[in-house]
Nucleic acid binder design. Structure first.
Length: 417
RNA sequence: GUGCCUAUAGCUCAGCAGGUAGAGCGCUGGAUUGUGGUUCCAGAUGUCGUGGGUUCAAAUCCCACUAGGCACCCCA
């Protein structure tokens, strides 16, 4: 019988990597706090219809990547492939539109998509995201983008690129797609096989093609920016102005296409070259003013949000910054059973003083010293019968080898130095 | 979902013109019964990813499956 293993596309996050995950989450929470975002926790599974209607039935996510299963009562449930639809569902369900001001919510947790696993792509992956719901103003777009950049910066990540675009709205985008489709009809025959297919199925995807030979053709295709309606154009100009006000470096990518149907107007993405391989997108986001209505809401809920691929962010953090090592402040080494019982109390005091303490089992001192060294303890506390009767302990600095004698009251302070 | 590459000790890998496994690091014990790191000695590493086939004989050749990596698709 073979041992049971983690299933394909899932993985265990072990120390020391789990420490980096915690650091990233701590940074994100602190940035969210400063921007006055509060946490929302939604269920990990929902009625299948939520994603079909919210994300879009024709998207790859819904059409072939969802973990969908039948509940015992016959209903169809799905493990969430993303979280924006759930947040909007909660917003509607709890009438958060009646609350004063913008609803500024953040979340972090696992998402599930049944794709072929690859580096930076897992079937259970983690997203840290935020949604600002209740306003359509471009000022919100700029602040959301600033906030996510702040998270990356404070995680110590450098060298990323911010791309922004406007994908229009239900008024102007269909006009553009029609124009694109018309133009492609004439030139698609000379393009790569994938583009010939995309020209029929999803013309916008042609813009994303990476085949070098196709680039001249793509460059000559009409741009969405020439087809934006008055409202969308004004919105996009404002976003760019507000980003520039903040000195945020960005690049307009008229050809950037996002895979979720609910995006309109502003979309953005941050990529980082390095540890990620071809999955170089660290985060993506955009505005979704029509999403609430498509979920059956009578009230509008214009909003914008993003989600960071936490797995990918952790990868780049691990690549670019030296992991802050978990260190033991003091390794308490009792010699003998009596000393062990005494040391248990000493260890408790030191822990109450906020120190990281490892209490060794009673045993040979040599063995304890070896272990202290392997664990990378900063100090070792030697406690035998001599120390207990004298009421003074021997504290050894592992780096210098220097030993000092300290009494119990001054112990915590001595360990700290 | 498609194509290509890969799978040997806890880790990194060697072994492959077929003859039932090795190195370094790490781990355990000892040299040293109250002192680690360096050194020396000893030891255990393992259904060679899983299952089947060819063969007197398979880690080695063939097939399938599983998992990982890369590219595509797509996305976080």
């Amino acid at each position: 019988m073979n041992p049971i293993r983690a299933i394909r596309g899932t993985r265990d996050i072990l120390p020391p990597s789990s420490t980096v995950w915690n650091q990233v989450e701590t940074v994100a929470r602190e940035v969210f706090r400063r921007y006055n975002y509060q946490e929302i926790r939604t269920p990990v599974f929902e009625e299948t219809g939520l994603f079909a209607r919210g994300v879009g039935a024709e998207t790859d996510i819904v059409s072939k990547e969802m973990y969908t299963f039948e509940d015992r009562d016959g209903g169809s449930l799905t493990l969430r492939p993303e979280n924006t639809a759930s947040v909007i569902r909660a917003y509607i369900e709890h009438r958060l539109d009646q609350q004063p001001g913008l609803q500024k919510l953040y979340y972090m947790g696992p998402m599930f998509r049944r794709e072929r696993p690859q580096k930076g792509r897992y079937r259970q992956f983690y997203q840290i995201g935020a949604e600002a719901i209740g306003a359509g103003s471009p000022a919100v777009d700029a602040e959301v983008i600033e906030m996510v950049c702040e998270i990356l910066t404070r995680c110590g990540v450098e060298g990323w690129k911010l791309f922004v675009n406007s994908v229009g709205c239900p008024e102007c985008r269909p006009v553009y797609v029609a124009a694109l489709r018309e133009r492609l009809a004439g030139v698609a025959a000379g393009m790569c096989r994938d583009c010939q297919r995309r020209a029929e199925t999803n013309p916008l995807r042609v813009l994303d093609c990476k085949v070098p030979e196709d680039q001249p053709v793509i460059d000559a295709l009409p741009s969405i920016h020439d087809h934006l309606c008055q409202t969308c154009r004004g919105h996009f100009d404002s976003v760019k102005t507000y980003l520039a006000d903040r000195s945020l470096a960005f690049e307009v990518r008229p050809r950037m296409v996002r895979g979720l149907d609910y995006y309109m107007r502003t979309t953005f993405e941050i990529v980082h070259e390095g540890a990620l391989g071809s999955q170089n997108s660290v985060l993506g986001g955009g505005r979704y003013d029509g999403l609430a209505e498509s979920l059956g809401s009578r009230v509008a809920a214009p909003g914008i949000g993003f989600s960071i691929g936490e797995d990918r962010l952790v990868m780049t953090v691990e690549e670019t910054t030296a992991a802050a090592r978990h260190t033991i402040d003091v390794y308490v080494a009792p010699m003998g059973e009596a000393a062990f019982r005494h040391c248990a109390l000493v260890a408790r005091d030191l822990r109450n003083a906020g120190l990281v303490v490892e209490l060794a089992p009673a045993g040979k001192l040599k063995k304890a010293m070896e272990t202290a060294n392997k664990l990378g303890a900063r100090k070792t506390l030697l406690v035998g019968d001599n120390e207990i009767t004298a009421g003074a302990y021997t504290l050894k600095d592992m780096a210098s080898g220097e030993q000092t004698t300290v009494d119990r009251t001054g112990l915590a302070e001595a360990v700290r130095n």
